[in-house]
Amino acid sequence: MSQQSIVSPDSKMADVILMNYLLLPVINRFGIRLGFGDQTVEQVCAQYDVNLSFFLDIINAYHDESYFPREKMRGYPVDMIVDYLLKTHDFYRQKMLPETQQLVEDLIASCPSECDNLNMIADFFSIYKQELENHLASEEKHFFPYVQALTKMEEGPPSLEKIRSYYDFSYDNHSEEHDNVISKMLDLKNIIIKYLPPNYNTTLCNNLLYWLFIFEKDLKDHERLEDIILLPALRNIENRLMQNL
């Protein structure tokens, strides 16, 4: 399968990983683990009780950046999307951030002398880590509950009071924060590639960089899902609620 291949219900799950190993953590996020044998994507999804069509869209969009079926994806229940985003948050908190932190620490520990400059990079990362954690926590505290509350409100009779009580979410800040999260990751990569002081350990530094590339790709995909699918869905619900008042 090539870059243009599209994963279909009867693709072998093992072939999907062989085609693009970066999909592994994405597949894990659905609770799916290795040992597929010769099962197809459809069979594995059934076994793990995963929505096949949603799974395929997520995987295909992640694999091929020029493919993003927005109209179809905007049709998925908001809860399903939020659930996937929450699992991604867990993955960042439990896996990506601690691993990256460890790689940064290993790099610093390998520095023989005059490590001030390397320490600058470590400081940059630890501030970034804190900011990303805050951003994830804030989405979980304000953004997702707001989305879910609005969805529930659509089921019952709408009331202006109820809508106002949730109306403290700011779209502007939200996309600004996303911008910041991605920009800092790019800056960190660029600083390491272009301006790293020479007294570093090559292997450890390359490990860190590989990891940052994977992290960045995942963050971009995550951001795309929120900004292009979830936010417009949210605006649609808001508009419908306002019209029905």
């Binding site: 600058m120 940059f124 920009s183 800092k184 790019l186 800056d187 660029n190 600083i191 301006y195």
Partner: peptide, 22 residues
């Protein structure tokens, strides 16, 4: 020119290149 966009990234660059003391 630098490929660095954020204030904190620019700060790290400035220190690494001795434009400002740490």
């Amino acid at each position: 020119k630098l490929g660095i966009k954020t204030v904190s990234g620019l700060t790290v660059y400035a220190v690494l290149n001795n434009l400002i003391p740490k």
